[in-house]
Amino acid sequence: MSPSQLRFDLRLIADMVAPKTRVLDVGCGEGELLKFLRDTKKVDGRGIELSMAGVAAAVRQGLSVIQGDADTDLKDYPAGAFDYVILSQTLQATRNPREVLEQMLRIGKHAIVSLPNFGHWRVRLSLLAHGRMPVTSSLGFAWYDTPNIHLCTIDDFIDLAQAIGARIERGLAIDSSGQIRPFTPPDWKANLMGENGLFLLGK
C-alpha cells in the first residue's frame, strides 16, 4: 500500500510513528493502519477491535489483532509495553475517556489520539442557528443513535490531557478542506477552525 491509498487521517497518524517501534492500535478496524505501518515502517503492531468482522479481516491479513474493547481490555497490558498506543476517532465513543487515556499512557510511551472537534465553527453555528444537536460531516449521527457519547472540543481534550499529567508533544487541527494546522495550546483558532484534532501525547 502506498501512502496515498491510506485514509487521510490515518496517514497523519502514521507520520507520527517512528519506524521499528511497538504499536497498539485500539479500535483498529480491519487493520488498515497496522498493515501500512508494518509494510512501510517495519512496526511491530497489535490491534484491538470491537467488531468480530473487523478482527477476522485483520487476522486474515496476518495482523495480530484481538477482539476487545478500549474500556475494558487496556488494563490487561503491562506498563510500557508499547511505544505508541493509537486511538483514532474512538475516544468520544468510550464509556470512560479519562480512564482510557490514562491506560493508554500507562501501557504506551506515547498516545496518539484523533477526535472530531465539537468546537468547530460549523458545529457551533449549527447549534446556534437551528437549536438542535448538530449533525455534520464528521458527526453524522442523530442524537438518539450516536455512538459518540462523550463528545468534546479540542480545548476540552487539552484540559483532560493536562488533568492526567500528559504532555502534548504535537497538536494538529485539520479543517474541513483537509488543511493541516500545527498548533501549540492554547490556540483558540485551532478549536474554531479544526474539524478534527490529532494529538501526540507523552508523559
Binding site: D44, R46, M52, V55, A56, A58, V59, L63, S64, V65, I66, Q67, G68, D73, D76, Y77, P78, A81, F82
Partner: peptide, 12 residues
C-alpha cells in the same frame, strides 16, 4: 496480553 505477547484472537 498481560505479558504483551503477540496474539490474535478471533471468535468464529
Amino acid at each position: 496480553n498481560a505479558v504483551a505477547a503477540n496474539v490474535s484472537f478471533v471468535e468464529i
